Simulated scan of single mutants.
Amino acid sequence: MGNGLACMPIKDMRGGFGSRSKRNSSQRKMAAQEELLHRRALSMAINQQNSQRFDGSMSRRTGSMSSRRRTLSDPFSNGKQVPIYLENIETRKFVLVHGEGLGAWCWYKTISLLEEVGLTAVALDLTGSGIDNTDINSITTMADYAKPLIDYLQGLPDDEKVILVGHSCGGAVISYALELHPKKISKAVFLSATMVVDGQRPFDVFAEELGSAENFLEESQSLLYANGRDKPPTGLMFDKQQLKVLFFNHSPSKDIALAMVSMRPIPLAPIMEKASLTPENYGTVRRYFIQTIEDNMLSPDIQEKLVRENPPHGIYKIKGSDHCPFFSKPQSLNKILLEIAQLSW
């Protein structure tokens, strides 16, 4: 990668534990853990009715982990949680930015897991997403779309920084935030995300798999035309079967059901807007990329191309993850986020 990081795979912990009874016990523990996370999600959803964001905080200190490039399977899949101790963390607050069609609700497992080790996690609804009622057809710029995040960063105390995490097209949103408020952000994490370069449209990241952005716009049956068919499309909405195949090919059925009733159409204009990024602002923040190995929406080849063309400070991989590891591999994602939080360079 040109940044001196080595690639060091971590042992896959999914097998080799002996007897069938141990495996059955492990499966029961996983099911219980999953059920607990879903109950927490319901509680968060109820609380969210009175708030624009999921916001939680605790202050328990929790060890130093390696800063090398890693390939992770789900580290908790053997049912035995490995103690994690965090120390000397410069930034304890994560701000989680969802991808296209999703909302703050999609981060419920990540929020719960981060808070369990004493970190703070805030998940925001971008404009026209989640419980924000803005008509997506009225969102015509990245500034419109990213406004909740920019407002949040502007409201932080002068001496406070956060770790930004952007998923999918949320990568373009956090890139926009890096350019505007680099001093508010200690690190940026791109989770299977559109880590664009200056002058690139977020939508262009997907162009190779779609043929081209222009052909897609001409041929797609998923486009919304609020201003009439003779005007440019204003939104995009995949049908449910497409979503299951593209986003959730390894996600639990409960999370897929949650997504099917919660996802919103995507405003098209922000992801068709060219990024304006400078070395003086965007280039001063440490960036990390998390690759999802079994992703049907943003293929591993495209993800590799993104990190070649715009090298981050570190790269991580999650085995067995679809496009939404906060659903399909939440523990592996959490372990990586904790490691990134502890990096001091």
Score class of each variant (00 low, 15 high):
R20G: 06
R20E: 08
S21A: 12
K22F: 15
R23N: 02
N24L: 13
S25E: 08
S25L: 07
S26E: 06
S26L: 03
R28V: 09
R28M: 08
K29A: 00
K29D: 02
K29I: 02
M30S: 04
M30H: 02
A31G: 09
Q33K: 06
E34Q: 05
E34T: 07
E34K: 02
E35M: 03
E35C: 04
E35H: 08
L36Q: 05
L36C: 02
H38V: 08
A41L: 03
A41Y: 00
A45G: 12
A45P: 06
A45Y: 07
A45D: 11
I46L: 10
N47M: 10
N47K: 12
N47A: 15
Q48V: 05
Q48T: 07
Q48R: 13
Q49H: 11
N50D: 15
S51K: 04
S51L: 06
S51C: 09
Q52A: 15
R53H: 12
D55Q: 11
D55F: 09
D55K: 10
G56N: 12
G56K: 08
G56V: 10
M58F: 08
M58Q: 12
S59K: 14
S59L: 12
R60K: 13
R60E: 13
R61N: 09
R61Q: 09
T62S: 12
T62F: 14
G63T: 12
G63I: 12
S64N: 15
S64P: 13
M65K: 14
M65W: 14
M65P: 13
S66T: 15
R68G: 11
R68T: 15
R69P: 07
R69V: 13
R70H: 15
T71R: 15
L72P: 06
S73C: 15
F76H: 08
S77C: 13
N78L: 06
K80A: 10
K80V: 14
Q81G: 00
V82L: 10
V82Y: 07
I84A: 03
L86D: 09
E87F: 06
E90D: 14
T91C: 11
T91Y: 05
R92G: 00
R92A: 00
K93D: 06
F94K: 01
F94R: 01
V95T: 06
L96Q: 03
L96I: 04
V97C: 01
V97Y: 03
V97S: 01
V97I: 14
H98E: 04
G99T: 08
E100Y: 10
G101M: 06
G101F: 10
L102R: 11
L102F: 15
W105I: 05
W105C: 00
C106G: 08
C106E: 13
C106V: 15
C106W: 07
W107V: 00
W107D: 01
Y108N: 03
K109L: 04
K109M: 03
T110N: 02
T110F: 00
T110K: 01
S112H: 05
S112C: 08
L113T: 03
L113E: 05
L114G: 04
L114Q: 04
L114V: 05
E115Y: 00
E115K: 01
E115P: 02
E116M: 10
V117K: 09
G118H: 04
A121I: 05
A121N: 03
A123H: 05
L124F: 02
